[in-house]
Amino acid sequence: MVQFEGPAFCFGDDINTDYIISSRRKRDTLDVNILKQYIMEDIRPGFFHELNGTTILVAGENFGCGSAMEVAAQVVKGNNIPVILAKSFARSYYRNAINNGILIVEMDTSSIREKDLLRITMDDNGILVEDLSNKLSVRCPGFRKELENIILSGGLLKFVRQQRGQKEGC
């Protein structure tokens, strides 16, 4: 079982990977520790400064559309955002997020409001999303065991290293 709790930060439909991290920033560097401060800057200036502790992104349809660049998922993970809830995800972003250890949940997000306190639990019964501010809960299907193990390991590279018995950095 894994559980995350934190405030919801809400975005709309069609959040493009270039909104998550602008292309102009990627020309200078691909270092996530530098890029993470520019998360969502074109659609929500100063968003980086709103983040404090565990944060949960909430969006509408087609989150992560646009290019298939992995750095858009890496910037999310680099900002301690372990969960994204959305009505739907672009397929390439969906897989990039899982490969970076981000829990992706497709569900109806229309009842979740900005700064609602959310608790997300992934266990053997699937994924439970609780809006503690509104006392609502939704049970969503879980992942195939292989994908769940990648998420729980912190991403695909960490998962492979664990399977091979290697230490980080090898």
Rank of each mutant, 00 (worst) to 15 (best):
I15Y: 01
N99A: 07
L118Q: 08
T109H: 05
M69Q: 15
D18S: 09
F143W: 13
I127T: 06
I104Q: 04
M69H: 15
I120E: 03
N96E: 00
Y93D: 06
V58P: 03
I20W: 03
E61L: 06
G155Q: 05
S67N: 00
F48E: 14
L117Y: 12
L136T: 14
A90K: 09
K135T: 12
S137C: 14
K158Q: 11
S22L: 12
A97P: 11
L157N: 12
P45G: 09
D28R: 14
I56H: 04
S133D: 05
F63G: 06
F159A: 09
K167E: 15
G64F: 00
I120V: 09
A68K: 10
E130S: 11
G101C: 08
V76M: 00
G165T: 01
S92I: 15
I127Y: 02
A90R: 00
M107Q: 05
D28Y: 15
S88H: 00
I81L: 04
E106S: 12
G12P: 03
K145D: 14
I104N: 08
L30H: 06
R139F: 10
R161S: 12
I43D: 06
Y19K: 10
E146G: 11
E146D: 13
S111W: 13
M40N: 06
C140A: 04
E146Y: 09
G78W: 09
I112W: 03
L51H: 04
R161T: 12
I112F: 05
I120S: 01
L132S: 10
P7Y: 07
N100F: 04
S23G: 15
L132K: 12
K87I: 01
L51E: 06
R27G: 14
S133W: 02
G53K: 04
G169V: 03
D28A: 15
L35R: 10
I104T: 01
V71L: 11
V83E: 01
S67Y: 01
I120F: 05
D131K: 09
L118K: 12
R91Q: 03
G101F: 04
L35S: 02
S133E: 04
S110F: 07
F89S: 03
G60H: 03
M40G: 02
C140K: 07
L136I: 13
